[in-house]
Design a protein around this nucleic acid. Structure first.
Lengths: 205, 205
DNA sequence: GTCTATAATCAGATAGAC
DNA sequence: GTCTATCTGATTATAGAC
């Protein structure tokens, strides 16, 4: 009977997928807290509550685990931009997206990777889920940027790729944690201030 | 005779100081190229051409060596801001300083430290040369910021500390290396573009 | 697939001769 | 102070039983 066999397999698969998701979640948090090099695979396994050898059955290397975590983040980002209400202006969509990434970082859920590590870069480039998500997010943001420029809301003297990189960089802006470290502002105030410096600049308008 | 003895001691001391400077220079470059965690003490010793044990006679730990490199950088930064022509506006002084840090980074001479590493943070805080330089640079930039705000050149709605952190952060802005990686812009163009996004913002003026 | 136990490697730091 | 040689500990990754 198909009806008895299919659920059994599905249940097992669900358990496995849940475990992988737990690994990715912990990895995500540790990447955000300590960074790729300072964080260890032992910590991930210990926090999830499985043996390290079992972790390596799911992911062939530390780099691949990090890539999976980044792919998951890209999925979340893509879901966010896809769920954006269509009645907002392109600029507002860009602002909302950047604010979302900032809040993620302030909440300690934004994994930060060293931009120089080559083994990690290759693992990321090999990860189809990550690359596809990155491309899709970039294209959507890029379209909004050009739309906002056409509407005269974003500086037309800036090339779209420069705007795109500048927005992406807000996700790992050290100003966020510097301001948080002063303990003088709550997260909302920090987001407001950095949003202002990002979109309006430092000069008086 | 003092005249024969003094030079002899001074010569020895000069040799030692020169060796320490060589260590700091190599450390500085490796910090910029690979970052603190990826770089090894062995590399520093090998490039300078001394044994690792000798290095540890100069600096008690990897963290202290990094702190010394950062202190040296602060010295250079302080020298730069002190040498600034007095006939420039406060805003222009700020712009010149930020541009200087960006060019340093583009030239691969800006050491980047992980902001989370706690052992490194304590080593930095303990290093009087670094802390003094940081304080002095911060105070000078802070004075310029307030002056520029009083002259209506910098957004008065921003608290000076936010402006200060935003300017400091340009020294480790990943947008610089992203744009460099595209190989479509020379360093001057990159500095111009990032200066524009920093001071003028992304929105149309 | 999960576990315990272990390999293999690498990096920070030190001992001791000179 | 500088060297060679070594220690110590941590970390990625794997072998093999169940």
């Amino acid at each position: 009977m198909v009806t008895t066999k299919a659920p059994k397999v599905s249940f097992k698969a669900q358990m496995l997928q849940a475990r992988e998701q737990a690994l990715i979640d912990v990895m995500n948090r540790l990447l955000a807290e300590k960074g790729f090099e300072a964080m260890t695979v032992d910590e991930v396994a210990a926090e999830v509550g499985i043996a390290k050898a079992s972790l390596y059955k799911h992911f062939p290397s530390k780099e691949d685990l990090a890539a999976a975590a980044m792919a998951h983040l890209m999925d979340k980002a893509l879901a966010f931009v896809q769920a954006m209400p269509a009645d907002q202006s392109a600029l507002d969509k860009l602002r909302a997206t950047v604010a979302w990434t900032m809040r993620l970082k302030l909440a300690g859920q934004m994994p930060t990777l060293p931009s120089q590590n080559s083994t990690l870069r290759t693992a990321l480039m090999r990860n189809k889920g990550y690359m596809d998500g990155l491309m899709e997010v970039s294209e959507r943001l890029g379209a909004w940027i050009e739309e906002a420029q056409a509407q005269g809301q974003v500086n037309t003297a800036l090339q779209p790729v420069v705007v795109l990189y500048t927005l992406f960089a807000r996700a790992c802006d050290p100003v966020l944690e510097f301001l948080k470290a002063t303990e003088q502002y709550d997260d909302d105030a920090i987001v407001d201030m950095v949003m202002s410096t990002c979109f309006d600049g430092l000069r008086q308008r």
